[in-house]
Design a protein around this nucleic acid. Structure first.
Ligand SMILES: [Mn+2]
Ligand SMILES: [Mn+2]
Ligand SMILES: [Zn+2]
Ligand SMILES: [Zn+2]
Lengths: 137, 137
DNA sequence: AATCCAGTTTATAATTATTCTAAACTGGAA
DNA sequence: TTCCAGTTTAGAATAATTATAAACTGGATT
């Protein structure tokens, strides 16, 4: 699905020089069927599996920030002390399970908002995020 | 509105010994007209204004956690690195302004949800929070 | 009222997540 | 091939929070 060339184009078009570190990270992030909800820590683990060319944690952070700024990933709201990111950049919502600290996508159309408030004057709505926290039944 | 006796009862009924630190913090939190959205840092500033009996930052954190566990305050979702708390424990939502890092209440009835997804099996919904981030118009 | 102790407070250290720094490296334009 | 702005990196620094352990105190018991 995501060939190396596509990844390189994606990086180039966002003014990100396609270094071997960024290409590897992009592969790990985008070359998968399901959307990926991750923290710097989990991404670091995935990227730095045995054997693979080692990428520093600083680069993990730098790249996550760069991809976020470029709009390739988005940050998600949680109450966890770590920052969570999402490879699904379409507008959608999340279940959050505080037990497992795992996020699950909720498709945009699975929530229908009948009424939302007007933003304060001088401001407009940038984003509306819904987080549904779960507990054991 | 919140007399000292009420505060002491509130603490007692949650199995929190009404120490002078907790009583002072509770006053600062609950003896106000508007709901209060705060971080450990802002609460510390409010509590430790000139003159007042000094309360350690550790106690600020301990008390916030105790009040949260007792259900007197709730934690709010934001992407900020600090934890945000709310004296309004009724179910409601928020505007978040990333510029000012300020939260504003949205009354529960100002949002009407026409459809929400079913939770995964074995789980039930503990809470549904909506955060509307703002930007300059 | 004096005693007592579990619960609480506190200063300080430790931990955790993240950002900063500055030196070495490299993609790719020229 | 040269060159340099952009990038990577190890390690230091920062920031928020939590842990530790000694001192203190609310209030029950005597
Ligand atoms: Mn968060
Ligand atoms: Mn938060
Ligand atoms: Zn998602
Ligand atoms: Zn609120």
């Amino acid at each position: 699905m995501h060939q190396k060339k596509e990844i390189i184009n994606k990086l180039r078009s966002s003014n990100l020089r396609p270094t071997k570190q960024r290409i590897l990270i992009a592969k790990k992030l985008f070359d998968r069927k399901e959307t990926f909800h991750f923290t710097a820590e989990t991404l670091n683990k995935v990227v730095n599996r045995k054997g693979q060319t080692r990428i520093s944690l600083a680069t993990i952070y730098n790249t996550v920030e760069a991809f976020k700024k470029a709009g390739h990933i988005r940050e998600i709201l949680t109450n966890n002390s770590k920052s969570y990111y999402d490879t699904n950049i379409k507008s959608h919502h999340h279940f959050y399970d505080p037990q497992t600290k795992k996020l699950t996508d909720i498709d945009y159309q699975e929530v229908i908002l009948k009424k939302i408030p007007n933003p304060p004057k001088g401001k407009k709505i940038k984003d509306l995020e819904i987080v549904i926290s779960l507990q054991k039944k």
